[in-house]
Design a protein around this nucleic acid. Structure first.
Length: 308
DNA sequence: AAATCGGGGGC
DNA sequence: GCCCCAGATTT
């Protein structure tokens, strides 16, 4: 029994088109160049968790210039780690990346580990990142599934406008079935497929206004064949609030601390450029940052970790 | 399964 | 103003 509905395209027909398109149209990103080290790939994957490529590029360049190896990253002051991370967002990722580097120094001889099991054991490395590093840095035919790939799969093979919020068992099964065979080329095509579908989702098959007119598989796409129906309410993403959230307040505190000077607790809590934030919220957020080791307090003054 | 965790650019 | 972006971790 085929896993694909009668109207869905055959993977064997889709794959060469998407891979061929990638070979012609892929962006020249620094972490894709042949001279990029596995550590460079690792850094890019963590930075790209929920952060667009355009914002990652300058931070990745600076990080790799300063800390080109796990050892260099492991030995850096946490305050510098967080300063170079700058406004990429979710700064706990920066601390986890350093913790991952320290684990590589201790357990893997200053190398990025090569198996998904070893990768998955590193701080900040989940199912996606482990597979992505194994595939992109080491050429292993792991099944890589990110938000772009889920969307392309949903449209081309399932005829849906969007994949829905949760990664279901059915979606994982589909992703496995779509992978090329690895026997003939030791997984080269599988890795190319991973990168190509991701790039198609990032450049053509985008969430908001997909460029079906220039898509290499538009004539095979189940969603296009169905008349490009809009997303169902089930598939809508409930927009994450920002104004007034603890995340915004935490971000404002971190921005102040990144200026480099230790700040008296009272001054810090009062000087935030968020007039609507209550004193209770400001205090709660500062305490949570201290708990997360994103900030430290000593003798009534607050700073990035390690400077006091 | 749902909540939490940043921040900015595109529309 | 709303939405989305190469997710991970905790509850």
């Amino acid at each position: 029994m085929s896993a694909f509905s009668p109207l869905a395209p055959l993977p064997a027909e889709v794959r060469p088109r998407v891979i061929g398109w990638f070979e012609e149209q892929a962006r020249d990103l620094p972490w894709r160049r042949p001279e990029c080290t596995p550590w460079g790939v690792m850094v890019s994957e963590v930075m790209l968790q929920q952060t667009p490529v355009s914002r990652v590029l300058p931070r990745w360049e600076e990080w790799m210039r300063r800390w080109p190896t796990p050892t260099a990253t492991a030995d850096a002051p946490a305050s510098e780690i967080l300063t170079v991370w700058d406004r990429l967002g979710y700064p706990r990722r920066a601390l986890r990346l350093q913790a991952a580097a320290q684990a590589m120094v201790e357990r893997h001889a200053d190398e990025v580990p090569t198996t998904v099991e070893q990768l998955r054991a590193l701080p900040g490395v989940g199912e996606y990142t482990a597979a992505a590093v194994a595939s992109f840095a080491f050429g292993q035919p792991e099944v890589v599934v990110d938000t772009n790939i889920r969307r392309v799969h949903a449209r081309v093979f399932s005829g849906a406008a969007l994949p829905g919020k949760t990664y279901t068992a059915a979606q994982r099964k589909l992703a496995h079935e779509l992978m090329p065979e690895t026997a003939h080329d030791q997984g080269r095509e599988a890795c190319a497929w991973n990168a190509s579908v991701m790039e198609l989702g990032a450049l053509i098959c985008t969430a908001k206004s997909p460029q079906c007119a220039i898509c290499p598989v538009a004539d095979l796409c189940a969603w296009v064949a169905a008349g490009s129906p809009p997303p169902t309410e089930e598939q809508q993403t409930k927009g994450q609030a920002w104004a007034g959230t603890d995340r915004q307040v935490r971000g404002a505190i971190m921005a102040e601390l990144r200026r480099g000077e230790p700040v008296p607790r009272g001054t810090l809590l009062e000087s935030l450029p968020l007039s609507e934030a209550s004193s209770e919220q400001r205090l709660r957020c500062l305490e949570s940052l201290l708990r997360d080791h994103l900030a430290e307090e000593y003798d009534g003054r607050v700073a990035l970790p390690g400077v006091l």
